[in-house]
Design a protein around this nucleic acid. Structure first.
Length: 480
DNA sequence: AGCACA
């Protein structure tokens, strides 16, 4: 019986330029597959560590005849195909192409994402990184940062080939001992590809370098600050002020959208960019102002306050290490308000009138991607009549500090939170904040007449929550 | 040693 099924296997194999390899060592790499198969033709794709035992693989040749030549060769060879001494069984795959389900980090590019395992940010200087990676070609730019994954660096080369050679040589290896401080044990490099093509380096600093632009200003504070962190009068480490605030949102019973944050933080000045993300299961957001003064005012005023009544969405604000966020202009988790609204421009300016001829082709006026950002074809938070929309280059940030927030309603807490206040919620009556004009997330239930918080009317939370009804008498909004 | 995963 089993012999006949084997026969069936044999004879139902129609040639394919994709080969199925099995009995591989589980450690097998794509490179080893290429090494094995390359003599027979051009490999256009591979997929290794397939199956529960991770001992199968697929190799796709550019041409069917190349796959046939490999299968025929090993069919009649006395020496079986081998990887790491293990015999590898080869047959035609029953598919005709390898589906490209490579994770983003496997898609080759000219920028590498390097995770330096087992070290702190201070252990490996950017100069050491530069030295190590320069062995493979000219390093254009380096940006380093710390994430939950550890200390990471983006390394930009001229092209993907150079990047690939560096990755090939360094992935899984360690930075030479003599380049590391003594206390560092092992420090493996984990290298994948970044989706970036061109890094946006603003300063030469201890965290980032642009080797193509020697005229770039040097950020001494970043360098000095890292070497000698500022110490506050209480002896605690004081985070340097920044124009970018990091908001941690506690007790987030209700959705906090980009629009909500924009509304809340616009009370203090032009919000340039917002990014929302998750860290350790908590929602955090970065809010970028044009300058430190505005950020500082916003931080002072909003720290510890809640976006919604009832202690929901409590803000904890610190200064971010960022000075300029690199965010998608339109997404549900980020917004760049400094980017002109192309869809608005498009309605006012014929496409042929673009001043920058390059701008047109990059974002076609009828781009579905652009329209997809705005269900219904509207730009809720992009009303140009809103003060908050004004691009940063129009505003005069310098005027804010002494100006005690003219324009939008002045939150009382901005100057002096009253100790008698019964609530520290920022939003009691959302309509008074102009939320309705700014574009309300569909799930926010606004009741313009009443002082109720913009709770999620349709959410089960709204039903179960004890504090979703109208505020008690005397429970006045902080907004006059 | 026998066909992936979105």
């Amino acid at each position: 019986m089993s012999t006949s099924t084997q026969h069936q296997f044999r004879y139902t194999q129609t040639p394919s330029k994709v080969l199925h390899l099995r009995n591989l060592p589980w450690e097998c790499t794509d490179d080893e597959l290429v090494e094995l198969c390359n003599p027979f033709g051009k490999i256009v794709n591979t997929k290794c560590n397939v199956g529960t035992n991770r001992n199968q693989a697929f190799v796709e040749f550019a041409d069917l005849n190349q796959a046939i030549s490999m299968v025929s060769y090993y069919a009649s060879s006395s020496e079986p195909a081998q990887v790491r001494g293990k015999t590898v069984y080869i047959q035609y795959s029953n598919r005709h192409e390898i589906v490209n389900n490579k994770s983003p980090g496997d898609v080759p590019g000219n920028v590498l994402l390097v995770t330096i395992e087992g070290v702190e940010a201070g252990d490996v200087s950017i100069d050491v990184i530069h030295l190590v990676f320069s062995a493979f070609g000219f390093v254009h730019k380096i940006a380093t940062f710390e994430k939950t994954a550890g200390f990471q660096a983006l390394i930009q080369y001229t092209d993907a080939e150079t990047a690939a050679s560096a990755r090939e040589a360094l992935d899984g290896r360690s930075i030479p001992r003599y380049l590391l401080p003594e206390h560092v044990g092992s420090c493996n490099l984990r290298i994948s590809y970044s989706a970036h093509r061109d890094l946006n380096i603003k300063f030469q600093s201890n965290r980032s370098r642009d080797y193509t632009n020697p005229m770039l200003p040097v950020n001494h504070t970043a360098i000095d600050g890292a070497l000698q962190p500022a110490i506050g009068p209480d002896g605690k480490r004081k985070e340097p002020e920044s124009n970018v605030l990091l908001a941690s949102i506690e007790n987030m019973q209700y959705a906090v959208t980009v629009d909500v944050l924009h509304t809340v933080f616009s009370a203090f000045g032009t919000v340039q960019k917002i990014a929302i993300f998750e860290k350790n299961g908590q929602t955090q957001a970065l809010i970028q102002y044009p300058d430190v003064t505005i950020a500082s005012a916003a931080r002072e005023a909003l720290e510890g306050h809640c976006i919604y009544d009832g202690g929901y969405c409590k803000l904890h604000l610190t200064y971010s290490r960022h000075t300029d966020l690199n965010v998608k202009a339109f997404s549900d988790k980020s917004r760049d308000y400094t980017v002109p609204d192309l869809s608005l421009l498009a309605t006012q300016v014929p496409a042929t009138c673009w001043q920058n001829p390059q701008a047109g082709p990059i974002y076609p006026v009828s781009s579905p991607a652009l329209q997809a950002q705005v269900p219904g074809g509207q730009m809720p938070s992009w009303d140009p009549s809103q003060q908050a929309f004004r691009p940063s280059y129009v505003s005069t940030p310098e005027s804010y500090p002494g100006q005690t927030y003219r324009g939008p309603p002045i939150p009382a807490y901005a100057t002096a939170p009253s100790p008698h206040a019964q609530s520290n919620a920022i939003v009691h009556n959302a309509s008074s904040m102009g939320v309705t004009q700014l574009g309300v997330p569909p799930n926010v239930n606004l009741q313009p007449g009443g002082p109720s918080p913009p709770v999620l009317g349709s959410s089960p939370l709204a039903q179960t929550s004890p504090v979703t009804g109208a505020a008690p008498p005397g429970h006045r909004p902080y907004y006059g």
